[in-house]
Write a protein that binds this DNA or RNA. Structure first.
Length: 996
DNA sequence: ACAGAAGCTTA
DNA sequence: GTAAGCTTCTGTT
């Protein structure tokens, strides 16, 4: 519609004052969009198109509506600039320039050509020039526009372009909708734009392989430029720098800094073919543009463009496009000479005509997920639109609306990250994208006194608000959407509310993307999927010593922050939930993830009893022991060194005392690991033994006896660990605050810690653990007859392995032979390497290689399993457990052999470790109901990967063990029937040491 | 006050 | 050779 007005007036040639040139950094945008936007494929043939869609949306938005973005002004001139090829004049200057660039991802390659074609479809000049980077062309146009008196906006967020920013040139980050002017550059880098060249010359750039000065980062560089004015001043007076290392590095690398400056300085005299008058913005050719968009199957954008240009979609034929093959090099020559396939779209018209809010019934999951992506991102995230709910009438309105909607994203704001100690300060809710609210409940005035007074007015009393919300939060017909649900489940449960039914966006992301870069926290997901960085809690409440409780945060600011959390969770859910179905991962989510949340919440809430006296006594003993060893060490060394400092220790042992065999760590320090010190001790050296002893004593004291009492909750007198459901790549849980999955067990000294974990009076602790579960999984998935038979017979698996390998009878087998077979069995689970096995067994690598060879001869099925796994991971980028959990290895195709080998070993391990993790998850999900059905009062307290710990009344110990074993051993059923029996050992005692 | 390295604990 | 979390030291902010 904006175009009809524009079409009426004559378009001036050239450029004059008041004109505004938009220069889109096309190449930069492609890479950024590819990584920032969720993957999207054309429905009809799976052609990857996410970067193309992002590009088209952005260009359309800028052409149509730039005034309402952070640019704030409409363009009169417009061009998209691309890199032509990787070789430029900079390579002659410095051959290493951009030498470490890897090939673009496979699914990005066809999109380079498509984006050039999109540019043409928009009637916008597409500019590139041999021997020059896009940045140089941009610099040249900036100069020309300035000379003509026009303003320029560079559409990019690349720091390499920031040197161009000034009075008439600004930048615009299209993904964050952020204008970048001089103040923004100064804020980000600490220097004004004209000093960016010198700053980059100092810091270098690992991506482009610009060397810079080692050890100088942006902060230091900015400070040095502030002090010395510019790079030449700095290099001339480098001797004045106080810090030794810094001074030496700058003096030694002055030449590198100078060449770096040449590399980063943009050339603004590129011999351009197109002048400014060629960049005048023309109205889009509706049918031409729509033809392209239809081909791409961008339904929403097609409709928008049709509306704005007054074109009838049905009248337009989809335009054939040229698609580059993934194995072809990218660049302007591709498409002409490279093999191409003409894409013929097949009737994608129907979805284009459908209104966005129509029910998506009958659609394929992948189409639905594409639709949801557009929905979730269509409405911009605007924290100023959120409302604070400050009276019961308003709250009731929201509750009614949420009940009607049947869907509610929800989040709590509290005083602590520990849900067992957290006090509720407020709640946030969202019922549609952009429609979110915050309910402040317990905010106080900033200067709250010791009495905790200063509760602000206009807040609904906590009890009253919760009484109103309880029916909604427990309403079976309203789905609650929460990010990291377990936390909120515990907080609300402590207020008598059992939230349900629910979905957890963190877990949905985990099921979809375990192993892909980045975690599954709300901030990361928002940036990844919505291209939006949410407000950070740090900015609201500070951090470190200056941190204040959320209760002291101003309600207006709290509303903008908290409601946004719910808004984002809702949008993420809309986006991610359909993807589960599209990828066949619904059952993993519904059977292995979601139901475990309330189970873990109850385990954490129960906690375990820890005896303070035992720990305190142990701590005293350890302190005495450590002090004694410490004096002995000082006696030998001759001075009171810091034994805890590996640096000092290395200098003494391998420097001053000249002990042999010291290897170096990657930072060049002497290595002082326990293994190395043990070896030295075995050669008769006295000191290394004592250091190992000292380390054990101080480790036990600081990590366990001294730290654990601090975790005893004063309200419950028990220790409540926190289990993370989405922290590991393989599907295992992790435990923290405190970590109860690494309580010592191997040494007698360490086991004493376990005696402090006790059962309540009249109760027992029951420990039940899977025997050899990962080897059993291996025998099942790799179908190894000998191993299956051994497990069926209940035989000693390591002895059988040794017997097969070395032709030794199991009867009277030397323990060393069994030990070696055991190490090989573990090695297989870890994705064996000769190097690792040699290390483990302290044997030469050739010998280890021979063992592995022999092992594979006797168990060819295992070699096949390993090769199949590697090939599968290489083809698909992920492996699966027997229950269908996916674990991604995006770097499995790395050209770096050690990275590739690491990913291969990890993927081999992940199928086994992940399957074992799935099995115990299933056991845990089924456990509570089984115990209840058997009318047993036993409660599950802890999980340690292959072990579950329960607390039960003494009279029910035997019956509990029967039920627990049955549930654990049958956990794979009925989803999977394993060809190898599972075996669980279980016993009961008064403390964890004796029960284990 | 924070980040990374080194070391040690578990399955 | 796989998967985690915590403490101490060290150097920088």
């Amino acid at each position: 519609m904006a175009w009809t007005a524009k079409l009426g007036r004559a378009i001036p040639a050239g450029m004059k004052k008041g004109d505004h040139l938009f220069l889109v950094d096309g190449s930069g945008y492609i890479f950024r969009a590819y990584h920032a936007l969720p993957p999207l494929s054309r429905k009809s043939d799976g052609l990857p198109t996410s970067a193309v869609l992002g590009f088209c949306n952005m260009v359309w938005k800028l052409m149509q509506d730039a005034r309402h973005t952070d640019v704030g002004i409409a363009p009169t001139h417009f061009a998209v600039i691309f890199d032509y090829s990787s070789k430029t004049f900079r390579n002659e200057l410095y051959p290493e320039y951009k030498a470490n660039r890897s090939a673009p991802p496979e699914d990005l390659i066809p999109q380079f050509g498509l984006i050039r074609q999109a540019t043409a479809a928009f009637n916008v000049p597409c500019i590139e020039m041999e021997g020059f980077e896009a940045d140089d062309i941009i610099a040249t146009y900036c100069r020309l526009a300035c000379e003509a008196g026009g303003d320029t906006t560079i559409v990019s967020s690349d720091k390499d372009l920031m040197q161009l920013v000034g009075a008439m040139v600004s930048m615009y980050d299209p993904m964050k909708d952020r204008h970048i002017g001089v103040p923004q550059v100064v804020e980000k880098w600490g220097v004004p734009p004209q000093k960016m060249i010198d700053l980059q010359a100092l810091t270098g750039d690992s991506v482009d392989n610009v060397p810079g000065v080692p050890g100088i980062g942006p902060k230091t560089a900015a400070q040095l430029l502030e002090q010395f004015g510019n790079l030449d001043g700095l290099l001339a007076r480098a001797g004045e720098i106080k810090q030794d290392k810094r001074r030496e590095s700058i003096i030694a690398n002055a030449d590198k800094a100078r060449i770096s400056r040449e590399l980063v300085m943009l050339k603004n005299d590129v011999p351009l073919k197109e002048g400014l008058d060629d960049l005048v913005l023309h109205a889009p050719d509706g049918p031409k543009l729509i033809g392209f968009l239809k081909t791409m199957e961008f339904t929403t954008l097609t409709r928008r463009v049709a509306e704005a240009t007054g074109t009838e979609i049905a009248d337009v034929q989809a335009t054939p496009v040229t698609i580059e093959r993934a194995d072809a090099a990218h660049g302007p020559d591709v498409g002409a000479g490279a093999p191409t396939i003409a894409a013929t779209p097949n009737g994608a018209e129907k979805p284009a005509a459908r209104p966005e809010d129509a029910p998506p019934q009958g659609d394929t999951p992948s189409l639905l997920s594409a639709l949801r992506l557009e929905q979730a991102t269509a409405r911009k995230i605007d924290p100023s639109a959120y409302v604070a709910i400050r009276d019961t009438a308003a709250l009731k309105d929201w509750i009614a609306e949420a009940t009607e909607a049947g869907i509610l994203a929800f989040d709590t704001e509290t005083t602590s990250s520990d849900p067992m100690r957290a006090d509720l300060i407020g709640l946030s809710m969202a019922i549609a994208p952009g429609r979110a609210a915050y309910v402040p409940l317990a905010h106080t005035s900033g200067n709250g006194d010791l009495l905790g007074g200063g509760l602000l007015s206009d807040q609904i009393p906590v009890r009253e608000a919760l009484a109103l919300l309880k029916p909604l939060l427990e309403d079976k017909s309203v789905l609650k959407i929460v990010q990291d649900l377990k936390y909120d489940l515990i907080v609300m449960s402590r207020h008598g509310i059992e939230i349900g039914p629910f979905d957890d966006t963190m877990l949905i992301s985990y099921v979809l993307d375990a192993g892909t870069s980045g975690g599954h926290d709300l901030i990361g997901l928002s940036e990844k999927w919505l291209g939006h960085a949410p407000a950070s809690k740090k900015e609201l409440a500070g951090s470190g010593r200056n941190a204040v409780g959320f209760e002291q945060v101003d309600i207006g600011r709290a509303t903008a922050y908290a409601a946004e959390q719910a808004d984002i969770a809702l949008r993420l859910w809309q986006l991610l939930k359909p993807r589960l179905a599209a990828k066949g991962l619904v059952s993993v989510y519904e059977r292995l993830e979601r139901p475990l949340v309330p189970v873990l919440a109850r385990m954490e809430q129960r906690g375990i009893s820890v005896d303070r006296q035992i720990l305190s006594r142990l701590s005293g003993e350890l302190a005495q022991g450590a002090a004694r060893v410490e004096e002995e060490i000082y006696g030998i060394v001759g001075e009171r060194i810091n034994i805890g400092s590996p640096k000092q220790l290395g200098d003494i042992l391998f420097g001053r005392m000249g002990l042999p065999g010291g290897s170096k760590t990657k930072t060049g320090q002497w290595s002082t690991t326990a293994q190395l010190l043990e070896d030295l001790a075995a050669e008769g050296h006295e000191l290394p033994r004592k250091i190992v002893d000292w380390r054990q004593l101080t480790k036990l004291k600081s990590t366990y006896t001294d730290a654990l009492p601090g975790f005893i909750n004063p309200g419950t007198n028990r220790v409540h660990t926190s289990y993370a459901l989405a922290a590991t790549t393989t599907g295992r849980l992790s435990s923290s605050d405190p970590n109860l999955q690494n309580i010592p067990v191997r040494t007698a000294e360490g086991r004493k810690i376990r005696t402090a974990f006790i059962a309540e009076k009249g109760h027992k602790l029951v420990s039940a653990d899977y025997s050899q579960i990962e080897l059993r999984v291996l025998a099942h998935v790799a179908e190894i007859p000998q191993l299956k038979q051994a497990f069926a017979d209940g035989a000693d698996i390591h002895a059988i392995t040794a017997s097969e390998m070395f032709n030794v009878p199991v009867e009277g087998m030397p323990s060393e032979v069994r030990r070696r077979a055991k190490a090989i069995n573990f090695g297989i689970i870890y994705g064996i390497s000769a190097f690792g096995l040699a290390n483990q067994l302290s044997i030469p690598r050739e010998e280890a290689s021979a063992y592995i060879k022999r092992y594979f001869e006797r168990f060819p099925g295992i070699r096949d399993y390993i090769e199949e796994t590697k090939a599968y991971a290489r083809e698909y980028g992920f492996v699966e457990t027997i229950f269908g959990r996916r674990i991604h290895y995006p770097e499995i195709r790395s050209s770096n052999p050690s990275i590739r080998a690491f990913n291969e070993r990890a993927s081999i391990n992940a199928r086994l470790q992940g399957t074992a993790a799935d099995i115990i998850r299933r056991a845990m999900v089924h456990m509570e109901e089984a115990l209840e059905k058997a009318k047993l009062s036993a409660r599950m307290l802890l999980q340690v990967h292959d072990e579950l710990i329960f607390e039960t009344v003494e009279a029910e110990v035997e019956a509990t063990i029967l039920v627990v074993r049955r549930v654990m051993e049958n956990a794979p059923m009925p989803a999977v029937s394993m060809s190898v029996p599972l075996h669980v050992d279980a016993r009961a005692a008064n403390n964890w040491d004796e029960a284990h």
